[in-house]
């Protein structure tokens, strides 16, 4: 439960490989790991998905119920996202209320989904000003081997795409699929030394100085970004991250379906 120390040998080895554009697991700098998606895995949820990105694993579940709209958006449904880095997922994660890492994770995933307009909240109005559908997305890291941002994004998006509004359960008419309009996909790069790599694993993430998550929509337009880490990135590096986010985002979108 202490801070994780990456050995000097591991750090040097990763950096030495990167000089030749290589990585420990055989990937190139802009390769992402294998993605597998098990959508609809939780029947008690209104939508769900368990996602593996390499050895990183995240589960997301959607719960939808009637509630009161916010006064400033009387005819819009409400979308809420939460993430927990539970100690099951890694020896450095501790139990307790979500810390800053978990909150950042949930907010970055939320931003991509919200800003892309993926969930058509206007269609979630039951009675204007009085009742709307409230949509909760809860995400849990189950196994952490780096890049929770992209794994959680794929899990949340897949769970929402599989979601059904449980109208019958609440006597509000017939069940219907949650109205979704597009598939926002995030692509995360990290900087190690002067190299930029996609989809970092745990060791790569630990020795990286900066992180950039870029979320694109179906048209390849940018919908959310988040720079993290104590290091910096240059304009040129930013440009490379954006190009890769569009290209790889398209590939991931095809896997999501």
């Amino acid at each position: 439960m202490s801070e994780h120390v990456v050995s000097e040998i591991k750090r040097d080895h990763i950096m030495k490989l990167l000089k030749d554009g290589r990585r420990e697991d055989g990937r190139g700098v802009d390769d992402i790991r294998k993605i597998s998606i098990d959508a609809g895995c939780v029947e008690s949820a209104d939508g769900s998905a368990r996602v593996k990105l390499g050895r990183t694993e995240v589960i997301a579940g959607v719960k939808i119920m009637p509630g009161t709209p916010f006064p400033d958006t009387p005819n819009s449904g409400v979308l809420t996202m939460g993430a927990e880095l539970i100690p099951m997922a890694h020896s450095t994660f501790e139990s307790g209320p979500p810390g800053e890492d978990a909150i950042e994770l949930a907010r970055v995933v939320d931003r991509g989904i919200r800003e892309s307009g993926m969930v058509d909240v206007k269609q979630l109005c039951i009675k204007e000003g009085e009742e709307v559908w409230m949509c909760f997305v809860d995400m849990y890291a189950l196994d952490y081997d780096g890049n929770l941002f992209d794994a959680a994004n794929i899990a949340a998006v897949s769970a929402l795409r599989s979601a059904v509004i449980p109208a019958e359960q609440y006597g509000r008419g017939e069940n219907k699929p949650l109205p979704v309009t597009c598939t926002p996909v995030s692509v995360t790069s990290v900087k190690i030394g002067n190299d930029l790599i996609l989809d970092p694993n745990f060791d790569e993430e630990m020795i990286s100085s900066a992180r950039l998550t870029v979320t694109t929509d179906d048209e390849g337009n940018f919908r959310a970004m988040q720079k993290g880490g104590r290091g910096s990135i240059t304009r040129d590096e930013l440009s490379l991250c954006l190009d890769r986010a569009v290209e790889k985002g398209k590939a991931i979108r095809e896997i999501i379906g």
Binding site: V42, S44, A45, D46, S48, I59, G61, V62, K63, M65, G82, E84, I86, P87, S95, P97, P98, F136, D138, Y140, Q169
Partner: peptide, 17 residues
Amino acid sequence: CKYNMQAFSVSDRKRPG
């Protein structure tokens, strides 16, 4: 031991924690 019910594991969403 930490036993935890995930928010979506039951019919009414369980508040995390």
